[in-house]
């Protein structure tokens, strides 16, 4: 009834209600209706408070993800360009530039559901059904190797999922670890023996130009390093396509003269190379076994591995769901061949 009245009318009505003006109250506003609270009160807490009915699994989630999320987050939740990576980064939190994802960093599963349901997809928030949300959360978990593809996520199974970084947080301890140290009369004279400039911002040259003219010097350098070598005649268009698809691999693999092992081994010269031979990379047991069995990364073998990594080599560390399209596999291979 109240919703048919204008607010001035509604306020007048509330003024007459028993609680109005009691105990220093002003009698302003009106009672929220249950339907209104239900419409807005959607937050979900670590103890499961707020979780709706419904369920979903990673297989269903994968399709929804490809449709609604992959344009920013990538097919495998690996993140495109500067958009958030949702998968990977396991065991990187004590490294330089840790990769913080649902798998590596988020302490509560409820946060993922809460955020996806209320705030995603970007530009179309609040449109996912509860089942879709469960399925998407399941797919993100699957992408992080946290559940199997037949695990059905629901209110009932929510607490069965273990978050890797659940114990990784401490409550603000600055009062003990910092404030106690950095209090008191500071030094005013001869506080140091020597002052040397140890780093200059100009060296990095990442400050936006105020005139709007911006020469991406660093980017030019990189592209020179990655310039295709003319060893054999390569399909330039396919190389270019492969380079784009390689973005999916970049969070784990480097390639080129200055490449280093990251979560995955260096891929420079991988085509035609025996498996498991990159110096300093810790391969999975199954990859070592395959290498001992004489596996060579021919184009055919790479294509088969890329198509379905976990099916091709059970126990591989590569947490990549796979490149389904043959054209994409060929493009990646062409790109891998192009980099010396």
């Amino acid at each position: 009834m109240l919703k048919y009245l204008n607010f001035i009318g509604a306020t007048a009505l509330i003024l007459a209600a028993p609680s109005a003006y009691a105990g220093g109250k002003h009698g302003l506003g009106r009672s929220a209706l249950p339907e209104e609270i239900a419409a807005w009160d959607g937050d979900v807490s670590p103890n499961g408070k707020g979780l709706p009915a419904g369920s979903g699994d990673a297989l269903v989630g994968e399709e929804i993800f490809a449709d609604k999320c992959a344009s920013c987050h990538g097919d495998f939740a690996e993140g495109i360009d500067n958009w958030p990576k949702l998968a990977g980064g396991i065991d990187t939190l004590d490294h330089d530039d840790p990769l913080k994802t649902v798998g590596s960093y988020w302490p509560y599963l409820s946060t993922t559901f809460d955020y996806v349901k209320r705030s995603m997809p970007f530009g179309n928030a609040g449109t996912l059904t509860d089942d879709e949300t469960y399925a998407l959360v399941a797919y993100i978990l699957y992408s992080n190797d946290m559940i199997e593809d037949d695990f059905v996520l629901s209110k009932e199974t929510f607490s069965d999922v273990a978050m890797r970084n659940a114990d990784g947080f401490i409550i603000d301890d600055r009062a003990e670890t910092e404030y106690a140290k950095w209090t008191g009369e500071p030094c005013m004279q001869n506080c140091k023996d020597d002052v040397k400039v140890t780093m200059r911002a100009m060296v990095l040259d990442v400050t936006p130009s105020e005139t709007g003219i911006d020469t991406p010097a660093a980017a030019e350098e990189t592209s020179q390093e990655e310039a295709p070598a003319a060893v054999e005649v390569l399909d330039a268009e396919l190389v270019e396509k492969g380079k784009k698809i390689f973005k999916k691999c970049k969070s784990c693999h480097q390639i080129g003269a200055k490449a280093k092992n990251k979560t995955g081994p260096i891929l420079t010269g991988i085509i035609g190379s025996p498996a498991g031979v990159v110096d300093g990379f810790k391969y999975s047991k199954s990859m070592k076994a395959a290498a001992e069995g004489g596996l060579v990364w021919t184009e055919e073998q790479i294509a088969a591995f890329l198509a379905k990594p976990k099916a091709y080599l059970k126990g591989t560390k590569m947490s990549f769901a796979g490149l389904k399209k043959e054209q994409d596999q060929l493009a990646i291979i062409e790109y891998l061949k192009s980099v010396e």
């Binding site: 807490s45 004590d94 840790p98 990784g168 947080f169 401490i170 603000d172 600055r174």
Partner: peptide, 25 residues
């Protein structure tokens, strides 16, 4: 209890050198 939303867990938390992170800072 705190909701532990995205912006108070995955963001705006301070990761220390040993990989543990401070929250509620």
């Amino acid at each position: 209890n705190a909701v532990e939303s995205r912006e108070e867990t995955s963001k705006y938390t301070d990761t220390l050198a040993d990989g543990t992170s401070r929250k509620w800072t």
